[in-house]
Amino acid sequence: MISVRGLTKRYGATAAVEDLSFDVAPGTVTGFLGPNGSGKSTTMRMIMGLDTPDAGRALVNGRPYPELAWPLREVGALLEARAYHPGRTAHQHLTALAAGGGVSRARVGEVLRTVGLAEAAHQRAGTFSLGMSQRLGIAAALLGDPGVLLFDEPVNGLDPEGVRWIRDLMKSLAAEGRTVLVSSHLISEMALTAEHLVVIGPGRLLADTSVAELTADGSSLEEAFFRLTSGAAMYTGTPAHRPDTETPSPAPLSAPSPSPYDPPHRRPR
């Protein structure tokens, strides 16, 4: 169970996440959908206690992540594929995490088999392909057999077989009664994976609903998504930029569209 209440994060004058509230229930895959830069990763980082919110809070099983007694046994997260030192083997990386999280060493071999990395367990992880990195990140997330799982863009850079594997894994984790939150900007992937959706625009909640309700009027999920995010997407191109538009008509004053010259919302480095 994840609950986010009034979560706000600002970088300078820019609000990456603004007054965001939603719950993620166990037993289903909840898709966390939004355009690039809409604040999905920032929200997940705040849930994991990596970033401190400017206001509001994110609770996992009723407590902030850093206050969990055994965090790895309650929450597993894949935030970035390469969250390991390239000089260590997959086995060493997971063994160190298991020691820190109070997880039995036997789990290391188990999760490596689960994600299909048993053969590569003693290979330096720096030599891994992106797909193998994702699998190692998922192994780390599964290490403590947690009831809550977060995946940030897990299918990025994966081949079709890997995409299907992750999809099936997430569904089976949810079927076991776990809470699964998976972010993506790929609507088609969410349509196949998620039953529930949390859609955010630039840092704000746009929808918190089931996939069935969102598409109840017969529209596809993609159409529903664009309806929600129109005016909210931040990297909107304008007709003036398209080569087939010779004479762009001036935008009506009553319906202002986001200017392409607005600076994109970025995290400062």
Partner: peptide
């Protein structure tokens, strides 16, 4: 610094957030 450049700090702080 190696934890930050490799990204492993995220895994480290997931295991030991304090």
């Amino acid at each position: 610094t190696g934890e930050y450049s490799s990204g492993s700090i995220r895994a480290t702080l997931a295991a030991v957030p304090h």
